[in-house]
């Protein structure tokens, strides 16, 4: 819900000064050409990156020994809280280079939020509960969306331009970076297929 609302907010903010918007369709497929569901696609351009602002009130809660949500997409320098809604303590950690941190055994919400000040993929774990897994995707663009069941994602209110696309999927192996694509979208409506090369995506 949170993710969806921020996406809408960004869209409207972008749409406002523009007169004509292009519709850009993407289809994300794996190495074998199969559509990938729930892949996260970031659209980046210098203009968009300039507009990137830290998000407010972003949290990664823990309930029923699971991170909620499993994937949290944030813009650079977003502060994030880790409220523990379980009656057991958690020890949240990340060894990811984008943000190495450790919230030692705690209950409730730790006083200091974690600021994600580097673009990258942060894998979260709990040292107490090995099954707990979540990702925080940090990027310096406000435009991003998730593919549907057919691997498709549509951006309506982008100016026709050249864009850098960065794609992530949770099947990416540990430590793998975003996979980047360059797309030129001059027409008002264009469709692009992004075929991932990162190992370990296919099932």
């Amino acid at each position: 819900m949170l993710k969806c609302s921020s996406y809408l907010a960004v869209s409207f903010a972008l749409a406002w000064p523009c007169v004509s918007f292009a519709q850009i369709d993407f289809k994300v497929v794996d190495e074998q050409g199969q559509p990938l569901n729930e892949a996260v696609v970031f659209v980046k351009s210098p203009a968009l990156q300039a507009k990137s602002q830290p998000l407010a009130n972003v949290e990664m809660a823990q309930a029923d020994r699971q991170f909620i949500p499993g994937v949290q997409v944030v813009t650079l320098n977003t502060s994030m809280t880790f409220p523990n809604q379980d009656d057991v303590r958690h020890h949240v950690y990340s060894f990811s280079p984008a943000k190495v941190f450790e919230l030692e055994l705690y209950t409730g919400t730790p006083d200091t939020p974690v600021v994600f000040d580097e673009v990258g993929i942060v894998e979260l774990g709990c040292n107490i509960h090995d099954s707990m897994l979540a990702w925080v995707l940090v990027n310096d663009t406000p435009v991003f969306a998730k593919t549907n069941d057919t691997g498709a994602v549509v951006f309506n209110d982008l100016m026709p331009s050249a864009y850098t696309l960065e794609v992530w999927h949770k099947n990416f192996p540990y430590g793998a970076p975003y996979e980047a694509f360059t797309v030129t979208a001059e027409e008002l409506k264009s469709t692009h297929t992004l075929q991932l090369k990162t190992k370990g995506v296919s099932f």
Partner: peptide
């Protein structure tokens, strides 16, 4: 013996 190292996923 071979044991996996996870952090939290298999490293």
């Amino acid at each position: 013996v071979v044991v996996p190292v996870r952090a939290p996923r298999l490293l």
